[in-house]
Computed example of a mutant assay.
Amino acid sequence: MFYQRMCKEFEEDYNIKPEDNISYEYFTTIWAEHLPEFKIPKTSEFVECSICAQLKEDRNRAKTKQEKEIISELLKKHFVQVETERKVYHATREQARFEPDEIMCIIQDGMDQKKTAIPRLVNEDKMTSLLARIRLHITGNIIHTNVPGGKIIPAYVDLLNYPHDSNLSMHLLLQTLFDNRARLSRCLFTQLDNCYRENKNRYMLSLAHVLVQYKVFDMVDLHFLPVGHTHEDIDQLFSCISRHLKKTNIYTMDDMERAVMNSYNVPVFVKHVEGVFDIKKWLLPHMVKNFKGQSKPLHFQFKEFDGKVRMRYRHRSTSNWRPVLQFKDDDFTPIEESKG
């Protein structure tokens, strides 16, 4: 699957013909020799996309060859749409590495809580397996920029003593921007998990508006992948952390932070979350109550036009931008554009 995807992307992006690529045997040899730590699990840990699941179920129930072919073609088109969205992020992160003054690219997501409870021992026995566990949560960010390794990785550890909602997501994003304020560029591109509770809501959209309103950035993009297809390079980071934790005895919070710092081939800067600003409370008085419809688009963009910060969106990267909403220039309140 990975070899086929590589050949396809080389052909589409670099006009390299399939026959000019290395053989599958050589591909697997290079993988085994240089990337032995990367393993492909037999089963995926991610929830399957509802569209994929439905189409696969319909194909299994199809009674004729023609029906199966039609459904297979629909499934193929769906995969193409997903890959097209994925390439938006991939292209932007490459641009951020070559043009760090033009664009700052950040991806943010949380790690599976089941893998981070402490104490965590390499060899469990009957007594240690009965120990009470303290639940931890790790939120990771990757800033793609022109540094050795191409990325800066802050990770935030909390004890689940704060609600995991948009307030925490906004706080950690702002913390990342503040800690890397010397690297702020003209534009900001954020790749976020397609989750209404944490990211895809009116609070995060309003924060993006504020970042343009107060001249932190000239333009801010919020980009999401389709639900069920949101796994990205940050999940590779979490996978490396998980594998390292399996080989390390973790007794305390300090042990966990040290283990996370040493788990990846690029330095991971770990911080303990000791407080969260109530950003939602600050934004709420300036927001319209009937703001809705943000759950379907995958891409939102904020920038100033004619002295006002405006938002536009598109359902997919192949769709046209729709400037349906604008914002007042005095208090960043979203208002519907008149139909006339």
Rank of each mutant, 00 (worst) to 15 (best):
I143R: 00
K115T: 15
K68Y: 01
T128I: 12
D101T: 09
V122T: 14
G110Q: 08
K68A: 09
M127R: 06
D112E: 13
T139W: 00
M104C: 10
I71D: 01
Q113F: 07
I142V: 15
Q81H: 06
P119F: 12
T116I: 14
Q54G: 11
Q113K: 10
N141D: 13
L75C: 02
L55R: 03
A91K: 12
R59Y: 00
I118G: 05
T139H: 07
T84K: 14
N60S: 15
A53T: 09
R135A: 10
K63E: 15
F79K: 12
K115S: 15
E83M: 09
K76N: 11
Y89C: 07
A53L: 07
E99T: 05
T139R: 02
C105D: 05
E83K: 09
E94K: 12
I134K: 09
Y89N: 03
D109Q: 03
G110S: 13
R86M: 09
I106S: 00
L130M: 07
L130W: 00
P148Q: 14
Q54E: 13
A96E: 02
H137G: 09
H90W: 12
R135S: 12
E73K: 15
K68S: 08
K87T: 08
R59L: 01
E83S: 14
H137K: 08
P148C: 11
T139S: 13
T116L: 15
A62Y: 05
V88H: 06
M104I: 10
T84A: 15
T84G: 10
T116H: 05
H90A: 11
K115P: 00
R59C: 01
E124C: 03
D101K: 07
A53I: 03
N141R: 09
M127D: 06
V82C: 14
H78K: 10
D101H: 07
I138M: 04
D112C: 11
L55S: 05
I143F: 03
R86K: 12
D125I: 03
T92C: 15
Q81V: 01
E73H: 15
E85L: 07
L75G: 05
L75Y: 05
E57D: 13
N123P: 01
L121H: 03
R61A: 07
I143N: 01
Q95W: 04
E99R: 05
P119C: 13
K114E: 08
R86L: 06
